[in-house]
Design a protein around this nucleic acid. Structure first.
Lengths: 380, 380
DNA sequence: ATCGCCATCTAGAACGTTCTAGTCTTCACT
DNA sequence: AGTGAAGACTAGAACGTTCTAGATGGCGAT
């Protein structure tokens, strides 16, 4: 029973946090139980220590790579750890050290922009020495549940991507742990916010279309999505600034392709089509484009379309969408930055304005192929 | 210094794993340090115990909701825990109990189908009493890194969504911990696999088109994406079965819209267009549709298009795509099931065929508006 | 010789839980 | 009145780390 055999072990046995740059297994001989993971207790520091004949403390020193061991024993211990397939237990480590060095991130599993933000958060957190723990919001998993998991996991700070939770709930949360909210407008003295200047972005789009000679410019909005209110406001004020109040038209839309497609159908049913359409985001814009193309409307010959986000979609050559760019990687970086700031200079620095920091990123307009001069000025 | 004040606390203070069905804060008075999270040590069982004047063991009993405390003290302890804002430390819990009851899931942050799978995994894991810990693969984060984090986190089993890692690496991993691979073909005695019958799915699509009178049916493939080989094979064999070998045409594509769009452009450059196009997946299909619509090709009048996945996209009324459905929630459920099976009857049951279980889900054809009878038979 | 110092290593106590093995009560049943 | 047995509670040892406070030994300088 429970015979031990020799078997090749791969690079899994590398020490925690060390990342091998190659996939090739390292040809190290390892002892593996014959019945793979039946009763096999986890390999611990004590196992390695016993194997080598030293104390657990010394093994710990070697595994962490801190000074305090001679090169010779360092090698022996490293070797033994690899052979046994030792993987440090992060939970025990966190328990012992006061700090977890953990940033908790709540995100919506279905939201493409959150995916971009996550990439940026990983990229920003790791160099700063923080690990990231994710908690997803999904159909069967509420924001509250997601946050509770993060709290139980001993995260030091929370980064919430586009939370829909009410302000007061977020406030009580912030009383307990530093909270950074991303991509949502929120004014609370205890909460840091990183978001795009939505209104400004839409204004860039309006200015662009007006500059091309458009006057009948319609906005298909995002309903109650985060940022939708700001974008509506930006649209109205820009139209007003250009003296186009008479042409203001806001059609109810939503977050995704289908609602924008429905909105476009109602536009087609009108006597006159607008010459410019500002969609709530890129996904909406593709819905608009799809319907217009099917109806035989030339783009940008008859109608110009502008999106929002500059997601991967927008750049595809066949879509080639003019859009307002939100820089996910910058937002992610700033969010991580705010969280770490809060953690390092906690109460001592009152953060200049003594309230939640509002970091507002200026958007930029990316002009591609779906916008052009208005038809009757320059007929194609 | 460090004055304590009274402040309202919200439902955050709910016990771990209990989920409140409402957002409304519960109007409980809580003591919160004035400088929110400066030096404030985490609230522990000992704090609650001291407050109430009982042992930590008793508080633990109450927090876990196991028998062993009188209703009266249960209330007092519950109350005190809420007041202090106690949140159990999951890391300490896992450390003490042998088991972590944790399933580690590796996923690609940019992959929409993985999002659907995640939803299903959460839905399946929680009723079974398992928690889910996520580890993302992203541009700056390799699969190896993602897996190492999960191992360090004491997960009991790993569910890998569409892993690209080489087979041998996965095999060494499986020697250490139960591994379930989802959405990738892999034959390894130690690894469970849950995937869709890709070839069969494409065959359904071919049969459907042939039934409508099509013969010139082209496949825009997925390059080296998981499943692409199987789908190519399925296409070839189905065409052969219908005696259409002469019409076999495979155009190199990829995972996303843009590559499929390029492939479609090369088709348009040919003398004759196929009458049926099988795209690698739904995203590819939208790329195809977009290009064809711009070129003025009637759908399904002149060309029928079939996707794969039945993602959210496909169902949108304006796309209304005929597609091969992969059921993400079923796949997720089965993956969780396999993992738990491995954990519960570990070595004792040799799993019938004494090897890695291959769970292959039959796909179904969802017929929508992008396919129709061939033009010269029934001209529109 | 003695001193101090560095490098190397170790014992043992944390960390916040849960679990085992109890100790008291109380109370029903002979 | 005596005997269990159940109920309510507690002490103290785990779990796998890291950290603090040493111990040991070698070695150069006094």
């Amino acid at each position: 029973m429970d015979v031990k055999i020799l078997e090749r072990a791969g690079s899994i046995a590398l020490p925690f946090r060390r990342q091998a740059s190659t996939w090739r297994p390292q040809r190290i001989w390892a002892i593996v139980s014959e019945t793979p993971h039946s009763k096999s207790r986890r390999v611990t520091l004590a196992d390695v220590a016993r194997e080598v004949g030293v104390s657990t403390a010394l093994v710990s020193i070697v595994m962490r790579g801190v000074p305090g061991a001679s090169p010779a024993t360092r090698d022996r211990i490293q070797q033994a750890a690899n052979d046994l397939g030792y993987v440090p237990d992060s939970r025990a480590r966190v328990l012992r050290q006061g700090r977890s060095q953990l940033l908790g991130v709540m995100f919506d599993v279905q939201h493409p922009f959150h995916a971009d933000l996550l990439e940026g958060i990983y990229a920003a957190a790791e160099p700063a020495g923080y690990d990231v723990v994710l908690s997803a919001v999904a159909a069967t998993r509420s924001e509250e549940r997601a946050v509770n998991t993060l709290l139980a996991d001993r995260c030091e700070a929370l980064i919430l991507l586009g939370p829909k939770a009410p302000k007061r709930w977020l406030a009580t949360l912030a009383a307990r742990i530093p909270v950074v909210v991303v991509a949502r407008t929120l004014k609370d003295p205890a909460i840091d916010v990183v978001r795009t200047a939505d209104a400004e972005g839409i204004q860039l789009a309006v200015d662009h279309l007006v500059g091309l000679g458009h006057t009948r410019i319609t906005h298909i909005d995002g309903g109650d999505a985060p940022g939708a209110t700001q974008r509506r406001r930006g649209y109205r004020s820009a139209m007003h600034r250009h003296g186009l109040d008479a042409h203001v038209q806001i059609v109810p839309g939503g977050l995704a392709e289908d609602s924008a497609a429905r909105a476009t159908n109602t536009l087609l049913a009108q006597k006159t089509l607008p010459t410019g359409i500002l969609a709530f985001n890129d996904r909406c814009a593709t819905g608009v484009l799809d319907i217009l193309l099917r109806a035989g409307v030339a783009i940008p010959g008859q109608v110009s379309v502008v999106g929002f986000d500059d997601s991967h979609l927008a750049g595809f050559s066949h879509i080639n969408l003019t859009t307002v760019r939100q820089d996910a990687s910058v937002m992610a970086e700033l969010a991580v930055d705010r969280a770490i700031q809060r953690l390092t200079h906690q109460a001592d620095t009152p953060l200049s304005d003594a309230g939640g920091h509002q970091v507002v990123i200026p958007p930029t307009l990316v002009i591609r192929g779906t916008t052009g001069p208005i038809a009757h000025v320059l007929p194609t």
